[in-house]
Simulated scan of single mutants.
Amino acid sequence: MKIKKLIYILIVLFSIHHICAQRNYDTKEVIELWPNKVPGENEVKKASTQTNNTKNNVKRLTDVTNPHLTIFHPNESNKNGASVIICPGGGYQILAIDLEGYEIAEWLTSLGFTAFVLEYRVPQKQEGALMDIQRALRIVRNNATEWKLDSDQIGILGFSAGASLSARISTNFNKKLYPFVDTADKHSAKPNFSVLVYPAYLDKGPNNTLTPELTLDKNTPPMFIFATADDPFANSALVMASALRSNKTPVELHLYAKGGHGYGLRPGNEAAEKWPVLAEDWFTKILK
């Protein structure tokens, strides 16, 4: 009986912790990217919509017209001064905001990073999404002193379509995509490092070669790429890594046999359990 009672207490405590964690996401500090009109956006600003699809216990958002960053701060005791902007995936249709956003931010803060979850424009607003991530990087860099961050250690981490967006800004950061809004836009939009987890849409060139939009040069940041062979989008990882290698850009590629697509870092999938360990090791090498 005592064992049963203990198990029951543990279940209740876990449930309370989970509920509190979910509520905590709604009370995090939020920074709107665009103080006035959102460039290139025809719809008025409003809260994003959660879809009815909760398959695999994933919260999916769509109809994002007011892009913003949600900030997750690490404990001061292990803060490392580096920061990461997280781009959830969802095929440029939705954002898997908890699986590939909030949960990733919690993991990054445990490593000492200040994490920012980006709600970029969806559905099917790829150009607007690129403006959003460019503006987000400039805002974080502009506030680096206030947030006690190293402005030369601002990275980006994306999943699936979010990894596509991460690759796009890593190769298009110098393009003027929108009329400058304020002094934040004087700052560079270049990520200092990029992490692409099960990336998609990077092989849209002729014969499944590199997507033409992704123009690499000597300023392309170092990248960590993880995918699995049974992922239908796996060729994106291979093509991107090959292009980076040819460009002499530091790249670390991991291709596991199985894992599929869209697993985040939740336990129960070997790929989901492996990539965070490998990424953490990579962070220690590039953030010296």
Rank of each mutant, 00 (worst) to 15 (best):
A82P: 01
N143V: 02
S77K: 15
R141M: 06
I154P: 11
K148E: 15
Q134G: 11
E127L: 03
E127I: 01
Y120W: 08
T114L: 06
L108A: 10
K125H: 13
E76L: 12
A129G: 06
I94G: 08
D132A: 09
N80Y: 07
W147K: 14
N143M: 08
P88G: 09
S83N: 08
Q93E: 15
M131Y: 00
A144R: 01
E103I: 03
P123R: 11
G81V: 04
K148N: 15
I139R: 03
W107Q: 11
C87E: 06
E119Q: 14
G91R: 00
Y102W: 14
N80F: 07
T114R: 14
E119P: 00
G91K: 01
Q124S: 14
Y92P: 00
A115W: 02
V117F: 03
C87W: 04
T109K: 10
F113N: 13
L69E: 06
S110F: 01
L108Y: 08
I86R: 10
P74H: 10
S151D: 12
M131C: 13
F113I: 12
I97H: 08
A105M: 11
N143P: 05
I156S: 11
H68F: 10
I139D: 01
L108K: 11
D98S: 13
V140C: 05
E127C: 00
L157I: 13
L111T: 10
F72K: 03
E127H: 02
C87F: 08
F116C: 04
S151F: 03
L130V: 05
Q124G: 02
V117D: 08
A144Q: 03
G90N: 07
E76G: 07
L118M: 09
R138A: 07
I85H: 07
E100M: 03
Q124I: 04
Y92Q: 05
R141E: 11
Q134A: 07
G158Y: 01
L137T: 01
L99G: 00
S151P: 01
E100T: 05
Q134I: 03
G91P: 13
A129D: 10
N143T: 04
L95Y: 02
T109G: 10
P123L: 06
I139E: 01
I139V: 13
L130A: 08
I133C: 06
W107G: 03
D152P: 00
L137K: 02
S110M: 06
N142W: 06
F159C: 10
A96E: 15
T114C: 10
V117E: 10
L108W: 01
E76P: 00
M131P: 02
E146K: 09
D152F: 01
I133Y: 11
L130G: 05
S77L: 13
F159E: 07
A136P: 00
A136K: 12
T70E: 10
A136L: 05
G155A: 08
D98N: 15
I139P: 07
G81T: 07
E146I: 06
A82Q: 09
G155P: 07
V84C: 13
E103L: 14
G158W: 02
S83A: 15
N143G: 09
T70R: 12
N78S: 12
V84I: 15
L137D: 00
P123Y: 09
V117L: 09
Y120F: 12
T145K: 15
D152G: 11
Y92I: 01
A105Q: 08
F116V: 05
G112Y: 08
V117T: 14
E106W: 00
I71E: 10
V84W: 00
L99Y: 09
G101H: 06
D152V: 02
E100F: 07
A136W: 06
